[in-house]
Design a protein around this nucleic acid. Structure first.
Lengths: 131, 131
DNA sequence: CTAGGTGCTAGAGCGCACTCTAGGTCAAGC
DNA sequence: GCTTGACCTAGAGTGCGCTCTAGCACCTAG
């Protein structure tokens, strides 16, 4: 697989993939005779996982740290577990908070709807009440 | 309330609060005789809501747009509702995806635990399996 | 009456995570 | 054999969202 195909399948841009390799998120890739990167399918699963780590808010330096430890092998399993555990716990908190935000938004949208419909009814800006 | 107290209660820094006023997230504040900003308690609820919009990933320019519309009054209710609805729907998708990520992490952490405990057992790096 | 703390402005600076540019190489199809 | 398009490198540039600096004003407590 050349880099363009990986980009298309993973959703990361070609530029980003090269950048990821440069900073160590991807292992140094094999090259074909012409010096072009040649990836195998594994990289797609790894990129999908990296995408999840990114989406949950893990900063790139910790993704790099994780990637480096992964490349080092079994001796780093404990540290990797701990790193993931930390972000997992943080994520659980964030999911709870975002779920609450979802409720807040639904309430607010509902209040806008009530306020908005009948223009003969008294209007009030819910923003002044909640906030 | 002076700006320091707002900072302490809201969790935003003094610098950030002034910045928020400058870009229009906060209305131009009242000043005391010495030219210092004087806030009333409402601002805390507004900041809390802004914090939620921020946390759910609404970029600052849309928060500014929302704030400006809010300042304009009832004529913008429909537009505000639509804006919130858009981000609400996006958020619902993200919450679902993050919940999935939580499961992925739990599975991975569990696999690390199994791999790690008995050092007499065969070890395998789960990373080569998933992902 | 003075020292320290908090406030003010304008504007520069920063860290993050890309994203793009310039100037090239290479391989496959016409 | 030449064009086209995907690839290469090093390094500069970008947008976001703050964050900090310099240099000054004010106010309150000792």
């Amino acid at each position: 697989m050349m880099i363009g195909e990986v980009a298309e399948k993973s959703g990361f841009s070609v530029h980003t993939l090269r950048y990821y390799e440069k900073i160590g998120l991807l292992p140094p890739s094999h090259r074909d005779s012409g010096g072009r990167r040649s990836f195998d399918d594994d990289v797609l699963r790894w990129l999908e996982f990296l995408g999840r780590l990114k989406d949950l808010g893990m900063p790139i330096r910790d993704r790099v740290l994780y990637a480096r430890m992964r490349a080092e092998g079994d001796s780093t399993i404990e540290a990797r577990r701990n790193l993931l555990q930390t972000y997992r716990d943080e994520l659980a908190v964030r999911v709870a908070s975002l779920t609450e935000t979802l409720e807040v938004l639904d309430a607010k949208i509902a209040s806008y709807d009530t306020t908005g419909s009948p223009s003969t009814e008294p209007r009030y800006d819910q923003d002044t009440i909640h906030p």
